[in-house]
Amino acid sequence: MPTAPAAAEGRRGWLDRLRGNTITRSLSGLFSRNPKLDDDLLDEVETALITADVGITATTEIVEDLRRRMKSREFADAQALLDALRADLLAILAPVSKPLVIDRGARPFVLLTIGVNGVGKTTTIGKLAKRFKDQGHPIMLAAGDTFRAAAVAQLQAWGDRNGVPVVAQGQNADAASVAFDALQAAKARGIEVLIADTAGRLHTQQGLMAELGKIKRVLQKLDPAAPHEVLLVIDGTTGQNAISQVRQFNAAIGVTGLVVTKLDGTAKGGVVFALAREFGIPIRFAGIGERPEDLRVFDAAAFVAALLPESLGGG
């Protein structure tokens, strides 16, 4: 039977970790001034959303909806508009707020992680390994990023730290061969979750993108249903470039879930709305800090609550 994820982490934690990013600062600052309900307010909302990488399409839809309702006198004051904005943002994210569910019957459930260099992919795998092990899943890692010797060593270090076995063949090994060996070993040992790393690649590198298809075909020789999850890791600071990455990776292998990292600090944050609006792919996790526990199950309600003050004049 599938295992449901742990309960969503507290909203206060989201607020504390997201407080510094662009969209939180701009929207909170805008409404903390107790603004007047007029076209100037809508113009400021529009600017804040575009600046935070929400995207032109999603921003236009949101602002035009608010403008129409304001002209129809649906809003008694700016507080009512704030409430409507919160509802509109939540409506975009709610359909993609779908936590990853591990099917214990898969034996093993194969999770293939993909993404460009520098997004925090290998670190995300390490954090996921700790999370799943803490949930009681026997787990194994496959060091399939064979283009970087440091990536293999990094994954092995995460395995040692968490007491998780790692299948590796070293630098320049065939990534599909590593994945095949790992799946064989996982089946033999009764492992429940196998997380396979892959080489970080630019979405424009067609040869490396084609290799993802090879890895998938090789895995399916042992299990026609594998991989059960293709998790694309996206850097929340890359803004609209993330759209191109998702489009290309999805075309190459079929993405079933997203992890958006680095949403704390200087990240603009709005890219999650653009991704949700453009692709509708579930956002499984959000990275809002360096600690393992800062890889959070994505919670649309908690995310939106962290972006906007509850009331005018509130922080």
Rank of each mutant, 00 (worst) to 15 (best):
L263N: 04
E9P: 12
L295Y: 00
G29L: 08
T47G: 13
L27V: 10
Q154F: 10
I288V: 13
G314K: 11
I195M: 02
P95I: 04
F31H: 00
G144N: 12
R12I: 08
I50T: 08
I191N: 06
G190M: 10
A142G: 11
L100A: 07
N34W: 06
K121P: 09
A267R: 08
V259Q: 03
L219W: 03
F285A: 06
E9N: 13
G236K: 02
A8R: 14
L37H: 01
R201V: 10
R73A: 14
G13V: 11
G207N: 09
R17P: 06
V297Q: 12
G163V: 10
N162D: 13
F147H: 03
L141W: 02
T24R: 07
T146I: 04
G207Y: 01
E229A: 10
G289R: 07
S32N: 15
P99N: 07
N21G: 05
G20T: 15
T124A: 09
E61T: 14
F298P: 03
P282G: 04
R291T: 10
V119Y: 09
L222M: 11
G170K: 14
V218P: 15
K221A: 10
D77I: 05
N241L: 04
V178R: 06
V178L: 05
D39S: 12
G144M: 03
G254H: 11
Q184V: 09
R67M: 02
P35K: 02
H137R: 10
Q171I: 15
R33K: 01
G265M: 01
D38V: 07
D160C: 15
T256F: 03
D40M: 11
A286R: 13
Q169A: 04
W14T: 02
T3N: 15
G120T: 13
I243E: 12
A305I: 02
F303E: 00
N241C: 06
V167T: 12
T3V: 15
K121V: 01
T204R: 05
D134E: 12
T24S: 11
D174W: 00
K98E: 00
R25Q: 13
L263H: 14
K214H: 08
A4S: 15
L295K: 03
R148P: 10
T266W: 00
K71H: 09
R284V: 11
V110L: 06
A173K: 11
L222F: 05
V116Q: 12
D181W: 07
S244I: 05
T198R: 12
V233H: 08
L275C: 10
W158A: 05
V193C: 14
I288K: 05
T122M: 08
P282R: 01
R86F: 01
N172G: 07
A58P: 04
G144K: 14
V271Y: 03
T204G: 07
A168W: 10
T47A: 15
M1C: 10
G213I: 07
L212Y: 01
F303A: 00
L232P: 06
V218T: 09
G144H: 02
L263G: 12
I56S: 07
G280N: 07
F180H: 11
D235Y: 01
G190K: 02
A252M: 14
